[in-house]
Nucleic acid binder design. Structure first.
Lengths: 158, 158
DNA sequence: TATTGTTATACTCTATAACTATA
DNA sequence: TATAGTTATAGAGTATAACAATA
């Protein structure tokens, strides 16, 4: 069909979508996201918001919905619904808080902990296998680039 | 200051969302996307799908909707609607094709070309200012990493 | 019978707003 | 009066499916 891609960096005043970093970032992020959400769903029965909540709660075991929202950058309604879904699946429990009755302390149930324990190595393995296609300087550059851009957009440090 | 945020590599069996590359990629991509779509909308009156179509058509001036869909990785209905919106704004024209009457040849109108000419330097400037927060090895690493991961996910080459 | 492109419809995702129960 | 969290509702955005015109 149409002869593809390039010889592109040639004209610096031309914009080729396929070389435009914001576009590439977006395209890559959705490919990665699709790839992983497929795994989370079929393998662990979790949607992405549920996955994020499970991981955040599992990481400190005992935190509020508000904390999850801030650290996973999710809207509180999204957190609330994910928590409800996880509760229904008996993976998470909502315990009353002693010092503030409006809050709920989120904790993994035993089966939530089991799922978490199975899920984490799996996710890390996926991450490793993604990054395995990079050599060391590339990997470092990518991570450093991510870090800088995150700072640029003030995404970290919640 | 090269103190990135880790202490996380400490326990390789722990998953911290803020260090998990797929999550970071996603979060960064949506921040960039939000940032740019705000500009496209307020400054040029374009939604992202329209922007992508405009850029793709402008780059070769004369292509079919199918080509746009393949090269910008958009669903054909999304292309169709973006083309309709751009046509309504008189930025694009649909011309009949000589060799296949099902196809339409998409071309920028004079005002579409003017918008394109204003938009491209602007977008490239934004890209440059994003990447300006990286030093040269980081920039190269990031780009190389993107390229490898794109290959991994078979995103290139339309 | 397959393909280009359009439209209608449905679905997913997410946010806004309104609410409750606290503080 | 403000906050934690929930729920109802509405709004994007996008895909599926049905369609018309052509190959």
């Amino acid at each position: 069909m149409v002869r593809p891609r390039k010889s592109a960096a040639a004209d610096p005043t031309a914009l080729r979508l396929e070389n435009f970093v914001p576009f590439r970032l977006n395209r890559l992020a959705s490919a990665v996201s699709e790839h992983l959400s497929e795994i989370y769903r079929t393998r662990f029965g979790l949607e992405i918001p549920e996955w994020r909540v499970l991981v955040t709660v599992g990481q400190r075991n005992d935190c509020t919905a508000q904390f999850v929202a801030a650290s996973a950058r999710m809207h509180k309604t999204r957190v609330s619904r994910a928590v409800a879904a996880l509760t229904k699946k008996k993976l998470i429990e909502r315990a009353a808080s002693a010092d503030d009755a409006r809050e709920r302390h989120l904790q993994l149930t035993p089966s939530g902990r089991r799922l978490y324990a199975a899920l984490v190595p799996f996710a890390l393995e996926r991450e490793r296998s993604l990054l395995a296609c990079l050599d060391e300087p590339q990997r470092r550059g990518l991570i450093a680039g991510l870090t800088r851009l995150e700072r640029f957009f003030k995404l970290t440090g919640v």
